[in-house]
Design a protein around this nucleic acid. Structure first.
Lengths: 151, 151
DNA sequence: CTCAGTGCAAAGGATTTGCATGCCG
DNA sequence: CGGCATGCAAATCCTTTGCACTGAG
């Protein structure tokens, strides 16, 4: 399924009149490897050869082509992941302490229920729903651990 | 239920050792009147007498006291609303075109299903879930309307 | 008197943009 | 060639912070 990813990406980019350039491929590869929503800073840390502005610009293009998806948490910093269809459908557990995001996949049975609920909601409010997102907000295991620095 | 709001707010503020000052009350009143998540800019537009920095600072305090809740959408601009318990439990329909957020309340039957799903998810991943959030992402009716500016 | 709260202006950090250059179709 | 893509640096935007002042307890 790996080879297929880049084909799909190229395809979606073509759909909006953009090319799949080396720089964009590097970004996609980083997102694929990391497998969770990450900040631009993290992308640059992995690939210092990329120009910051190009990464930002490419993320805009990739987002418009629906290759990546932007997630924003309470800390106001944008984080990016591969879009639905390029990865498994999933949701997020967002830590309100450190802002980290963990992907969670929902068991099929529950996911089916979710789909039903979301569909019904969209119908009720005449809102053209492209996708849904369930975020659990709370405290991740790291931050839940009692702080050794303060008794 | 209106008088009760400010009592609750004062209470929650007291809980974190802060006072319910006039400036904070104004912010809360704006949020109450508007009834949907709004940006600082919008708060200042309604109450130009408030100092920008004070609004930001007070929102931090109000957030820590769990009086307001920060919602961040794809555009990276923070929006604020009154917290759960001060308003009805609700979710959001986020327009991916203009970034606007519309509150939606979920019928009790569906909400009950949601609660069950969320609870089960949290249990599965050992994540201490404080709250959940269901966002519908799509296009609001305003943005869905064909753009008159471009044939 | 003391300390949280306020206002103004300046700083900060993430993201965007202007401009010249490089490169694919 | 023409236009998208890139890099660098400067600009912009939202948000935070420093500092002096005010007010409540």
């Amino acid at each position: 399924m790996r080879a297929n990813l880049h084909a799909s990406v190229a395809d979606r980019l073509g759909g909006v009149g953009s090319r799949y350039t080396p720089g964009r491929r590097l970004v996609v590869e980083v997102l694929e490897e990391v497998g969770r929503p990450i900040e631009v800073e993290e992308i640059l840390a992995v690939r210092p050869d990329l120009a910051q502005s190009s990464v930002y610009r490419n993320l805009v293009v990739l987002e418009r082509a629906d290759v990546v998806h932007r997630v924003v948490t309470g800390d106001g910093v944008g984080r990016f992941e591969l879009s639905e269809g390029l990865t498994e459908h999933h949701h997020h557990a967002i830590c309100s302490v450190c802002g980290s995001i963990r992907d969670i996949t929902v068991p099929p049975r529950l996911e089916r229920d979710l789909q039903r609920i979301v569909r019904e909601l969209g119908r009720r409010i005449a809102f053209s729903t492209a996708s849904h997102r369930i975020d659990l907000m709370g405290t991740c295991s790291d931050c839940a651990r009692p702080d050794p620095g303060r008794p």
